[in-house]
Simulated scan of single mutants.
Amino acid sequence: MNNRVRKIENVILMILGLAMTLIMFINALGRYILGDTFLWAEEVIRLLFAWAMFIGITDLFISGGHIGFDVIANKNAVTKKICAIVAYIVLMIIGWNLMVYGWGIISVIGKIPLPATKLPGAMFYIPGVLAGAAWIAIGIWGIVKTFHKKENDRQEGGQV
């Protein structure tokens, strides 16, 4: 992935993490100093967490940092390619379900406002739909890349 995109992503994740920490700290101070909490704090923290989680997970899929089955995958080049293709297919299936069912939830309850912030309820499900679409694209890209490597391996006499 482009270094500039990764830097922007890291800044966004840092801002989301700092915002969650600051809101939680302010809410705790309010509880002990004012004897009351801010109603919107928990809701905003959950929203920020949902966005941060899907951004981070998607980055791991792009960079190949996801959990793998190295014992099987690294036996030889064939098992490595088969495991990669299976992993990308599973990623696309999960992404499809996340996108389709997330969109279904949004269409049913998306306009219902959240209790404290009055933001649309869809705000909790939009990151999942976007991540699902991204995971499908990553899966397609990964399969194409895996098959392309196979073609390159043949052209170079089987050398990796």
Rank of each mutant, 00 (worst) to 15 (best):
W51D: 12
Q155T: 06
F147T: 01
G65W: 07
V78E: 10
L22H: 08
I67Y: 04
W51P: 03
W135I: 01
G64F: 04
G157I: 06
G68A: 10
L22D: 05
R6V: 06
G121I: 05
D59I: 03
P120S: 05
A116D: 12
M1L: 08
A50V: 05
M24L: 05
K150H: 09
I89R: 05
P120F: 08
H66A: 02
V44N: 02
L13W: 03
W40M: 07
C83R: 10
A131Q: 13
D59M: 09
V86N: 07
K80N: 12
R154V: 07
I8W: 09
S63Y: 09
N27T: 02
K150M: 09
E42R: 14
V86E: 10
W103E: 08
L91M: 15
K111F: 00
F49Y: 14
G121E: 08
W96R: 08
A77Y: 12
E9N: 14
T37Q: 15
A133Q: 04
I106K: 02
V44R: 11
N97V: 03
C83M: 15
L39P: 12
A73G: 08
N97D: 15
K149F: 04
V11W: 06
G104R: 01
T37Y: 12
A73I: 02
I109R: 07
D70S: 12
L98K: 07
G110W: 11
V100S: 04
G30R: 14
I15W: 03
H148R: 12
I8S: 15
M53E: 10
E43L: 06
G121C: 05
I55K: 00
V160A: 14
G157D: 05
I82W: 11
V108N: 09
G30D: 09
W141N: 13
P113Y: 00
W103N: 15
K118R: 13
H66R: 04
I138V: 14
I143F: 02
N10S: 15
V78Y: 12
L34E: 12
F54I: 02
N3G: 06
I72N: 05
H148Y: 13
I109E: 13
W141L: 04
I45C: 10
K75H: 11
L130D: 06
G142S: 02
L34C: 01
D70F: 09
Q155C: 00
N97L: 08
M24W: 11
I8R: 03
K145A: 14
I15S: 07
V11Y: 08
E156A: 11
K111Y: 02
K145V: 05
I12T: 14
I62D: 01
W135F: 14
A84P: 02
